[in-house]
């Protein structure tokens, strides 16, 4: 029975990782951009929510509604003024620019908010739990997983059912020909990064409610997100969810054996999956 509990907790944890990874997966799927600053941008969003909560006395769940458009604008501007300039065949410039950005954001937050641990307070819901058959699950972890599923479902709808999504896919396939159709790839990329930042804001909400955060934790979270995206299969959103859950379950199982092995078990699962399936679990056919 304890194993069932462990696996369920792992799946719920995986929901959090999938949420961290969804924006990354979207951006990678559209423009093959690996944003090493994604984790720091999530932490930035968490501080933004915190600021809104502190100044306006709102619940974090409401503060997200104010933070999300701001993060969209940040993402849009980042893509328009910085990242669009370095996209291309050479992978070095985008990697190094986002790496630099990661360091700038991290230390900028350190300067503005100090290294103290912060937390978003959501009230009694944090401690609430539901009996689910023989096991109990926390309401917050459950809400996180549900949010991850909803976010990924919504992104998929956007991707496959809307005019914007059509432009996303066309640009991803062939940016030059997309230009001949009247699509402006740079605008499409800017919107995509904006949307990724909205998703990052939702991830930041759960990051901040479920655990303490400080300016330096971005990269540590990012690494799980990247693992989820890569083992899920590049550019597959549902694959990203599966990848996140796989990492979560591996970590939970590792922790059940020895608490010190939690993180290690996740990394080893990542390596094993890639040794067996180098293109991940659900690779897109035309990559």
């Amino acid at each position: 029975m304890i194993w069932v509990d462990t696996i369920v907790q792992g799946i719920l944890l995986g929901g959090l990782y999938a949420l961290f990874a969804a924006g990354l997966s979207l951006v990678f799927g559209i423009m093959r951009l690996v944003n090493l600053a994604h984790g720091d941008l999530i932490v930035l969003a968490a501080f933004l929510i915190l600021t809104v909560v502190n100044f306006l006395g709102l619940s974090p769940f409401v503060a997200v509604l104010i933070a999300a458009p701001v993060m969209f604008a940040i993402g849009w501007a980042l893509q328009t003024y910085v990242l669009n300039r370095v996209l291309g065949d050479d992978i070095l410039p985008p990697l190094l620019v986002t790496f630099g950005l990661s360091v700038v954001i991290q230390n900028g937050l350190l300067e503005g908010f100090s290294a103290d641990s912060q937390k978003l307070s959501a009230g009694p819901i944090e401690a609430a739990s539901l009996p689910l058959g023989p096991i109990t699950v926390g309401v917050m972890p459950l809400l996180t997983l549900i949010s991850a599923v909803v976010v990924i479902f919504a992104l998929n709808r956007l991707f496959y059912r809307t005019k914007l999504g059509r432009a996303f896919r066309a640009t991803s396939d062939d940016a030059v020909t997309a230009g001949l159709m009247g699509i402006r790839p740079r605008n499409v990329f800017a919107i995509a990064t904006g949307i990724a930042m909205v998703v990052a804001t939702i991830a930041a909400l759960y990051l901040g409610i479920r655990a303490n955060f400080d300016p330096s934790i971005g990269p540590a979270r990012l690494i799980y997100a990247f693992e989820a995206v890569i083992i899920g299969g590049l550019g597959s959103l549902w694959g990203t969810l599966a990848g996140g859950i796989l990492i979560g379950v591996a970590q939970a199982l590792g922790a059940a054996v020895n608490p010190e092995w939690q993180i290690l078990a996740g990394h080893i699962a990542f390596v094993l999956v890639l040794l067996i399936r180098p293109r991940g679990l659900f690779p897109r056919a035309n990559d």
Partner: peptide, 23 residues
């Protein structure tokens, strides 16, 4: 391990490898 990963994902692979060694 990492040479199986293309382009930018090589970077992530090396990072994860370093984490595994550290842990």
């Amino acid at each position: 391990f990492t040479f199986r990963l293309n382009g930018a994902y090589f970077a992530i692979g090396t990072w994860v490898s370093a984490e595994i060694v550290r842990l």
